[in-house]
Write a protein that binds this DNA or RNA. Structure first.
Lengths: 247, 247
DNA sequence: TCCACGCTTCGATGGAGGTCGAAGCGATCC
DNA sequence: GGATCGCTTCGACCTCCATCGAAGCGTGGA
């Protein structure tokens, strides 16, 4: 009588029943995307074992994978996975002493981080959303569309079929002092891990990150991918994009 | 290097890796306390197997157990366990169709329910807190103290060492029309599952539940332990105890 | 005091899956 | 285009644990 979907949570539970898999999930817990070899090292297992783990986790929808050259980058598939990890940590026998530090670090990454060469996290998606609101970009509503994520799972990037730069966007690029590399596709997007919405990638995304760094709106961390927004940056982001970051 | 507390979440994960154990946790998911035999039936396993599961879950701190006569009642040890179950359900492949109904049912139980013969849930803890504020009870601040929960894990009940009825409390008992059984300890408390705070048990707790039912402030469900607060009850609770229930 | 009942412990059985080396498969570099 | 690198697949081994019957242990009732 209690068959079917009822105890299927046990199949998810089985995935977090192995120390190696848990170490993989913890390594990805802050939203980074890491290659398989790195995760094998983190888990302390051979490449073969790690591959088996990664396959099962991906198959179950806990991880997403992007192929970049001959590397395969794995990341958490969504915030629900992070919630699961947090719930497990809360119940773990020895409450990790560095949980606070770990938490603030993860918090910082969720708030604003770099994703390769562009901005991600809350700041990243707010920025893209603001540019759409301003009329600089058009073609999407900035919300998450799973069907696109599905299409682009292989590369991890979205194309510019959905988003295009408007005329006012072009003039903004000039007035804001963006130096946009010509040899790259102008607009790409990523599905943001922590927000489940798009953030801006491509040449435009990169030039924005560069310009923000130049004008000291943001400062990048040496040790992690977290991004700190300066007071100047908070003011500027509010005036230019209407973005107010929560504390 | 990644030893110690790090991968201990896998030991928790292992507990939710078994369908039988998951069915047990799901059966307890709304905060009820059920005897071992009932849980064996819910899980679809023998008493021996269920006992093994219950032992492991209790040992790991996911379940709490109260001995009543020759029965042993198991319940979730705290809200963190419920959060874990919810996180798992969210990731489960087939999102259960009755999740909405199940959720509202759990919601109702969290809001107000009976616990044996007295009130628990949000209403239960608010009631006890209000009586302390009014000066009817004294000796505790109504917040959760883990050290007491530890002491009382064996019985599941707290003693009256912390809480005593004041003079004004005595007159309230009379004026409110409470008929307090003489042969029972007047004041006990339980650590509320969903609130992690104390709610009122003992003879006083029971007589309050009886009186509320008499005056039609609340109506008890036939099928579950959920409690419905009538309009009269909402008004009365507000006027007498200063309690305003959310929506 | 003896029996019935609820639950736990013990011991034996069987299946699921974590592990790694070796081989296979693309992609990249020189 | 051959060598190297990153990753996956395959096959074999072995440990862990879910399961149940039977026995043991309190509690409650007659």
């Amino acid at each position: 009588m209690t068959q079917g979907g009822d105890a299927d949570i046990a199949t998810i539970g089985a995935l977090v029943a192995d120390p190696g898999r848990c170490r993989i999930l913890l390594a990805l817990g802050d939203g980074r995307a890491l290659p398989a070899a790195r995760l094998a090292a983190e888990a302390g297992v051979s490449a073969a074992t790690a591959s088996s783990h990664l396959g099962r986790l991906t198959n179950a929808g806990l991880l997403a994978v992007e192929a970049h050259g001959r590397h395969r980058y794995y990341r958490l598939a969504g915030p629900a996975v992070a919630r699961l990890i947090e719930a497990l940590q809360q119940l773990a026998p020895t409450t990790p002493i560095r949980s606070l530090r770990q938490d603030t670090r993860a918090q910082a990454l969720r708030s604003a981080r770099t994703c390769y060469d562009h901005l991600a996290g809350h700041l990243g998606v707010e920025l893209m959303s603001a540019m759409i609101d301003r009329g600089d970009l058009t073609g999407g509503d900035g919300t998450f569309d799973p069907s696109h994520a599905q299409q682009d799972k292989r590369t991890g990037y979205g194309h510019d079929v959905d988003y295009t730069l408007t005329e006012s966007g072009t003039s903004f690029v000039a007035s804001f002092g963006l130096r946009v590399p010509a040899h790259r596709r102008l607009i790409r997007y990523c599905v943001d891990w922590s927000e489940q919405r798009h953030h801006l990638a491509g040449a435009l995304g990169r030039s924005l990150l560069d310009r923000f760094t130049e004008t000291d709106w943001i400062r990048r961390s040496d040790t992690s991918r977290a991004v700190h927004v300066t007071e100047t940056g908070q003011k500027g982001l509010h005036e230019t994009f209407g973005i107010t970051l929560g504390r």
